[in-house]
């Protein structure tokens, strides 16, 4: 990966992030009913978006690895899972911080919360598998299969969890979605925050991918040296 490109992306990310922070804390007006707490929304939603994108990437990278067998897809799968996991954790944390004053509880078994938690657990398992497996092509294939199997579950999870909650009496019917943004400044802030987090995600992903590529190269070189020495 080109060094200059990574540096440029880092700078763009930093600028966008400063803009997003300024807009979320100073520029955007308070939401009428929720007050200041609602501002966490501008971080929460972008985190959720990149977390889901990361998990999608894991499955795509897995399928490409099984198909093409190139090491880079395996590395991409790992980098995407790790980065996605970070943002998925942030989604759960920022969601809890928001839920406590608004819903009165840190956690509720709402369908979106449950789906996110299950995704978090699945990819926790995926990363655990990667941590506990040796770095062999066979382990890479196994991880790729797990990434695909987990992604196949997402539609079933969404449907079943939604039914589970609709049939149960809903204690909390407050639903805060993207449509509550009546002020154009709110939309602008959300868009800038989305761009900032997408750039941050891409930057972290590429940095991690570059590290993994370097490590793979180092392993190859070490092996070559060992073989050359054994040959002498």
């Amino acid at each position: 990966m080109n060094r200059n490109f990574i540096a440029m992306l880092g700078i763009v990310t930093a600028l966008l992030m400063v803009a997003a922070l300024y807009m979320a804390f100073l520029y955007v007006p308070n939401e009428a009913t929720q007050g200041i707490v609602q501002r966490i929304f501008y971080f929460h939603v972008p985190c959720a978006w990149v977390a889901f994108a990361g998990f999608g990437l894991v499955a795509i990278a897995g399928a490409l690895y099984l198909w093409l067998g190139d090491q880079i897809w395996d590395d991409l799968g790992q980098a995407a899972a790790e980065t996605g996991m970070v943002f998925c954790t942030l989604v759960l944390i920022t969601g809890s911080i928001w839920a406590k004053p608004i819903w009165g509880v840190w956690w509720t078994w709402d369908s979106r919360l449950t789906t996110t938690l299950l995704l978090w657990l699945m990819y926790g398992g995926y990363l655990m598998l990667r941590a506990a497996a040796d770095e062999t092509p066979q382990s890479a294939r196994v991880a790729a299969v797990l990434g695909i199997i987990a992604a196949l579950d997402v539609p079933v999870v969404i449907v079943s969890v939604r039914l589970w909650r609709t049939i149960h009496p809903a204690v909390l019917v407050t639903r805060q979605g993207g449509h509550g943004l009546e002020d154009p400044r709110m939309v602008a802030t959300l868009l800038v925050a989305m761009a900032a987090f997408t750039a941050l995600f891409a930057w972290l992903l590429i940095l991690r991918l570059a590290t993994l590529r370097t490590r793979a190269r180092l392993n190859r070189l070490t092996l070559e040296i060992a073989l050359a020495e054994a040959g002498d």
């Binding site: 657990l121 398992g125 655990m128 506990a132 040796d134 199997i149 579950d153 999870v157 079943s160 969890v161």
Partner: peptide
């Protein structure tokens, strides 16, 4: 899949339970 890891069978519940949740519900 779990058979490929150093943790072996310990890995199975952590992989299987979250994925099985929709069927469990």
């Amino acid at each position: 899949i779990a058979g490929h890891t150093r943790l072996g069978d310990l890995t199975l519940p952590m992989l299987a339970v979250p994925i099985y949740v929709p069927a469990l519900i």
